[in-house]
Design a protein around this nucleic acid. Structure first.
Length: 562
RNA sequence: CGGGGCGUAGCGCAGCCCGGUAGCGCGCUUGGUUCGGGACCAAGAGGCCGGGGGUUCAAAUCCCCCCGCCCCGACCA
């Protein structure tokens, strides 16, 4: 491609609305333009990268036996009513105004619909079906450029199996394919155990990339041998002790003590003898959650324990139900509440907690003797510095960007849509499904996040829009133009993607643009070196410059690209 | 949806407090000089100051409403 003819609108200044490097560079390099919040036009240069990423994804999906579909973005709303997801997605689902249609935010329903009608026997499975298509979600807050958009390209695949072993196999195949895809795209990623959330299902892992711009929080062992989304992360922490003797309950006056820290300071005791109470609504049930000391409640964990949405109780409701305020709530003699406790407190005695009476606490609480605990669960949020559950050193807490997510869905959708097959005995069984997504734009943005410098993007060969960027330093020099044109044509002939800066502008301008656009190799054809029969090859990543004999330039470029 | 910021030429911004003919840099056009790290000189084009309403002799500027964009939070299969 000749730059003089190409539509690649580069920008020198940092766009006002872009905050993270990938967003700034994608705009400056003329890859994308914003149309509306979370909605981007992909310009030719950006689209070229997108196609290369899609090719890699396709190759790896095909390699595990995937078959590509092209599915409708417009779906009948009835289909989504049947799985209960009109409600589940809520305002996140785009509705069409003048037809009973929705814009598909994902494609479990359609896949299931097809499977229901055409997968009839266990002999028809396993199947791996995938699609690379635009998905629509009415994100309340699009952000970080293409990282979270209202319309985005996603590779979604679905496994259909007759057995749970089959599901495991399809899941593992995807995990392997995903590792290959992200590695080929030049990304440094890690895999974390994740919550399956409202998708339901038995297991799920996320492919994450460490980045301060990420929206997820990850706990990582020092050697990365343990990695989990904070939503489910655990750690090795000491439990509260059980003393042999359980003293009798005693009320203590604790005026104006509201927080655990204040309580510990006031009573001059260790945090580990304090049981913190936090109160939530789980749907319409008030739930008292007991945590040790100042442990932080993990709402995701609470949600999966309760199996429903949870939110903190309002101060007024709490007072109405207990007669006390937040700082003085405790598990003893509390009626009408479900009471659950963190595993750390299991069986403990000698604890101090609120007396359900303002400015009073109870001491010598024995959870077995004095309370009716409805269950002990892992409910706390891990903290940086705690020991990883596998003992591999201390945990780091980092931010991450989710690149891909793999789910063992099970039969959630096949149950509700009655997608069944007949097994060997002729019995109808629900098809067992898995669901596996990859955000295509995220691969691109993340690649730039991990591969850029102050001057611009540094593309990996695998997804670079062009492999070689020829710079004719001075278009007024016949020699320069002749050599540059010659090399350009040679590269085109051998099928190497090449961008040729033949614009009649100044050298500095061309060099800056070349670094900004970030092709792996720059070939600089200038009068000075040409006088000695040389051209210069600059490696974008290292900045290394190599002088090459003119007649060997094609060979050298080919060599450097392998 | 809560909190904050911003909206003036294609882009980046000043002007707004304190009302009085809309400015700077970059980019763009034409001509000339340049030609190895975003050149120089000269001449130009380009704006309903996000939209609507109000106050005023007069509004980019003051007041009210709306819209859009960005950030933090909530939310995020």
């Amino acid at each position: 491609m000749r730059l003089s003819k190409a539509f690649i609108p580069t920008v020198k200044e940092i766009p006002n609305d872009a905050v993270i490097p990938s967003h700034q560079l994608m705009i400056r390099a003329g890859m994308v333009r914003l149309l509306s919040a979370g909605i981007y036009s992909w310009l030719p240069l950006g689209y070229k990268v997108m196609k290369k990423v899609c090719d890699i994804v396709r190759e790896e999906m095909d390699a595990i036996g995937g078959q590509e579909f092209h599915l409708p973005a417009l779906n009948p709303i009835e289909l989504w009513e049947e799985t209960g997801r009109v409600k589940a997605f809520g305002d996140n689902l785009f509705h069409v105004k003048n037809r009973p249609l929705v814009l598909a935010p994902t494609h479990e329903e359609v896949i299931c619909w097809i499977a229901k009608n055409h997968v009839e026997s266990y002999k028809d499975m396993p199947q791996i079906w995938y699609q690379i298509q635009t998905k629509f979600r009415n994100e309340p807050r699009p952000r970080s450029g293409v990282l979270r958009g209202r319309q985005f390209l996603m590779k979604d695949s679905y496994t259909l199996d007759a057995t749970w072993e089959g599901l495991d196999k399809g899941y593992d195949l995807h995990a392997e394919a995903y590792k290959k895809i992200f590695t080929r795209c030049g990304l440094k990623f890690f895999i974390v155990g994740a919550s399956s959330g409202a998708m339901g299902g038995s297991g799920s892992q996320e492919f994450m990339l460490e980045s301060d711009s990420g929206e997820d929080t990850i706990a990582l062992a020092e050697d990365n041998s343990y990695a989990a989304n904070l939503e489910i992360a655990t750690s090795l922490v000491p439990k509260a002790v059980r003393h042999t003797e359980s003293k009798s309950l005693e009320e203590i006056h604790t005026p104006n003590v509201k927080t655990i820290d204040e309580l510990a300071a006031f009573l001059k005791v260790d945090h580990s003898v304090l049981a913190k109470s936090v109160v939530y609504w789980a749907d319409k049930t008030p739930v008292l959650v007991l945590l040790m000391g100042n442990d932080e409640l993990n709402e995701s964990k609470l949600m999966s324990v309760m199996g429903t949405d949870v939110h903190p109780i309002e101060a007024e409701s709490l007072f109405g139900l207990t007669g006390a305020d937040g700082g003085s709530i405790g598990p003893v003699g509390l009626n009408g509440f479900k009471i659950i406790a963190d595993k750390r407190l299991e069986g403990a005695n000698g604890l101090i907690s609120g007396a359900n009476r303002n400015d009073y606490h109870l001491k010598n609480i024995d959870l077995q003797r004095d309370c009716k605990i409805d269950g002990y669960y892992d409910l706390r949020t891990v903290q940086a510095g705690e020991t990883a559950p596998n003992g591999a050193g201390k945990l780091r807490i980092v931010r991450g960007i989710e690149l891909g997510h793999i789910f063992k869905l099970g039969t959630k959708y096949s149950d509700s849509l009655k997608a069944t097959y007949l097994d060997e005995k002729g019995e109808a069984k629900p098809i067992i499904m898995g669901s596996y997504g990859i955000g295509i734009e995220r691969i691109i943005a993340c690649h730039i996040e991990q591969n850029h410098d102050a001057n611009g993007i540094i593309w990996d060969k695998s997804i670079a829009p062009y492999l070689v960027h020829i710079i004719a330093v001075n278009m007024k020099s016949e020699k320069v133009v002749e050599k540059a044109e010659h090399l350009y044509n040679q590269l085109l002939e051998v099928g190497i993607d090449v961008l040729y800066d033949d614009r009649p502008t100044t050298p500095g301008f061309k060099f800056k643009d070349a670094d900004l656009l970030g092709m792996p190799l720059q070939v600089i054809v200038g009068e000075k070196n040409l006088a000695n029969g040389k051209i210069e090859v600059k490696i974008r990543k290292s900045g290394e410059r190599i002088l090459v004999d003119v007649d060997q330039s094609l060979m050298k470029v080919k060599e450097l690209l392998t």
